[in-house]
């Protein structure tokens, strides 16, 4: 196969180089391919995310972005290729094991536990970091109440961090306004103390004001929680404003990778988005 991909620039170090001796690359994907009968959703994708970076994946509808996400989180098993997260291969892992490793995600179409309270939604997010077993819960050991209280306090902090008003926590998730549901989903993802946060179109359906708030929030979260963030986004303003690196997918293949400035001027990207005439 002819390699047509633009040569990726050497990965820049994240904004806050980590003092501890950790590999600079948090997620490394090599030659990832996913075929659904007849349809190749992802073909030979190479991709990496430097630690503490905000990276975006863009591409027209049907470019294979969500399939890519689903493979990272263990929801879909790749046909071939490797995914290495923080030194561990996640290929073949169950989604909950991937979550335990430290990858959390949000969904393009909000998927909350709608008949549970706001607080319970966040506390479920914390599930992987909790240790109480079922028999301990029945026996009501003191550590059960202790852990429960710790998690409750932590969850309330997270709700405040994503900007959900107090007194919301006992409301059912489905009763929240749209923008707040997005924030809640974010809080749920954060509750598992992820190293890598995957955001699938976090500003979809938001007005410009809300979008700006969400963008600010993403930047702030990265700084305060020392997160690495991977975004799928349609809104170019969001992508250009917040990401350090951008990868462009089209028809399941990576057609470009680079800084926002490089992507903005890349002829293949313009072609993919606007059609051939635009470049001619």
């Amino acid at each position: 196969m002819i390699e047509e991909i633009d040569q990726p620039a050497a990965p820049k170090p994240g904004p806050e180089p980590d003092p501890v001796d950790q590999p600079a690359v948090l997620l490394k994907v090599e030659r990832l391919t996913k075929r659904f009968e007849g349809l190749t959703a992802n073909r030979d994708i190479d991709f990496e995310i430097p630690r503490y970076a905000i990276v975006s994946i863009i591409g027209p509808n049907g470019a294979g972005k969500t399939t890519f996400f689903n493979q990272l989180t263990g929801l879909t098993r790749p046909t071939s290729g490797t995914i290495e997260f923080d030194g561990t291969s996640v290929v073949g892992m169950a989604p909950h094991e991937v979550a335990e490793l430290g990858i959390a995600r949000t969904y393009q179409n909000i998927r909350l536990f709608s008949d549970m309270t706001v607080l319970a939604n966040v506390m479920v997010g914390r599930h992987v970091r909790m240790k109480v077993q079922w028999y301990e819960a029945i026996l009501g050991l003191p550590k059960v109440a202790r852990e429960e209280e710790e998690v409750r306090v932590r969850s309330l902090e997270l709700l405040a961090l994503v900007g959900l008003r107090r007194r919301y926590e006992d409301e059912l998730a489905k009763n929240l306004p749209y923008g707040d549901q997005r924030r809640l989903e974010l809080a749920r993802a954060l509750a598992s103390d992820p190293k890598l946060l995957l955001l699938d179109e976090p500003t979809a359906g938001m007005n410009p004001g809300e979008t700006r708030q969400m963008t600010d929030l993403i930047a702030r979260l990265r700084k305060e929680l020392r997160l690495t963030i991977l975004l799928i986004e349609h809104d170019m303003k969001v992508v250009m404003g917040v990401s350090e690196r951008i990868t462009v997918l089209d028809y399941g293949e990576r057609i470009a990778e680079g800084s926002p400035e490089e992507i903005r001027t890349n002829p293949r990207v313009i072609e993919a988005y606007l059609g051939k005439q635009a470049t001619a």
């Binding site: 008949d115 319970a120 599930h127």
Partner: peptide, 28 residues
């Protein structure tokens, strides 16, 4: 006791949306 614990929440999450519960870290 179970209903008001980590276990009960995990069950409820599973009832609400199984694949999201799994992705959130509940071993369904």
């Amino acid at each position: 006791r179970l209903a008001n614990s980590r276990v009960g929440r995990a069950w409820n999450a599973m009832r609400e949306d199984e694949s999201v519960a799994e992705a959130t870290g509940v071993s369904t």
